[in-house]
């Protein structure tokens, strides 16, 4: 084997800038998708708790469908398939904007939201039913009871699974390179194509993914430990 390791190649200069650019895209698409999937997941979970049949069915179908189909297929669907059903002016608008990024974000958001909805639902189930009753009894609406009483308690309980869902999303975001989003993985692949130094490029990418995951996990755990009160019933 006469492969010459050249770490400088990816740690300095133009290729290092590519890595940084890719990292920024990864962070951006992950952050946006995490926030959106939490929101969407919460809505889907609460739909399931209502007594309105269509909402319950929609929520159940949503989680089953998106949890049980491959993420890569979903990404391709949003990227290649959505233009067929979207109105022309939307397509035109998207063509002038970052369509790859949008399709990637939607795919990651919807996919992760299905998992998050199930976590939130289990969180809601672990709260005594009497909490909802006590909230409704003073005149709070269903939505108010969830926003001010039920969800704040549920979220405290499900922080650990939510961390793992967020970390999954960050790792899953590497798949959006397949539709041309220039994220960290995409850039590592580019460097490999240009330089044939795939080992260095993907090692750096791997270490960066690892660092992001560990950092996110650490921050949330510390927040949970120091700033969030444990609930005692």
């Amino acid at each position: 084997m006469n492969y010459q390791f050249d770490w400088d190649l990816v740690l300095h200069g133009e290729y290092a800038e590519w890595i940084v650019d890719g990292l920024i895209v990864t962070l951006k698409i992950s952050a946006i998708s995490i926030v959106l999937s939490m929101l969407l997941g919460t809505i889907i979970a609460v739909f399931r708790m209502t007594k309105v049949k269509p909402l319950v069915w929609f929520s159940a179908a949503f989680t089953e469908f998106f949890r049980n189909t491959p993420l890569l297929v979903q990404i391709f669907f949003w990227y290649f398939g959505s233009s067929t059903i979207l109105p022309k002016f939307v397509n035109q608008w998207l063509a002038h904007h970052d369509f790859e990024f949008a399709a990637g974000t939607i795919a990651l958001t919807v996919y992760t939201a299905a998992f998050i909805a199930e976590e939130i639902r289990s969180g809601i189930f672990s709260i005594p039913k009497t909490q909802l009753e006590a909230s409704r009894a003073v005149g709070l609406s269903f939505t108010q009871a969830y926003v001010y009483v039920i969800l704040p308690q549920a979220f405290r309980i499900i922080i650990p699974p939510l961390i793992s869902q967020s970390l999954n999303l960050i790792k899953n975001s590497s798949l959006v390179m397949t539709i041309g989003v220039a994220d960290l993985t995409y850039m590592a692949r580019q460097i490999e194509s240009y330089t044939f130094h795939g080992f260095e490029a993907f090692t750096v990418a791997t270490v960066i993914y690892l660092c992001i995951s560990l950092l996110v996990s650490l921050i949330i755990t510390q927040y949970n430990k120091h700033f969030l009160r444990k609930i005692v019933y």
Binding site: P128, T130, Q131, E133, A134, S135, A137, V138, G139, L140, Q144, Y148, V149, P152, Q153, R156, R229, I231, V232, Y233
Partner: peptide, 26 residues
């Protein structure tokens, strides 16, 4: 108003916030 056997206070809120939640929101 109703008072339950098991109190059913909101455990994540202080006493004061338990009392003002419904007046401020409803």
């Amino acid at each position: 108003g109703i008072v339950f056997q098991q109190f059913n206070l909101y455990p994540h809120l202080t006493v004061l916030k338990n009392v003002i939640l419904a007046p401020t929101k409803v």
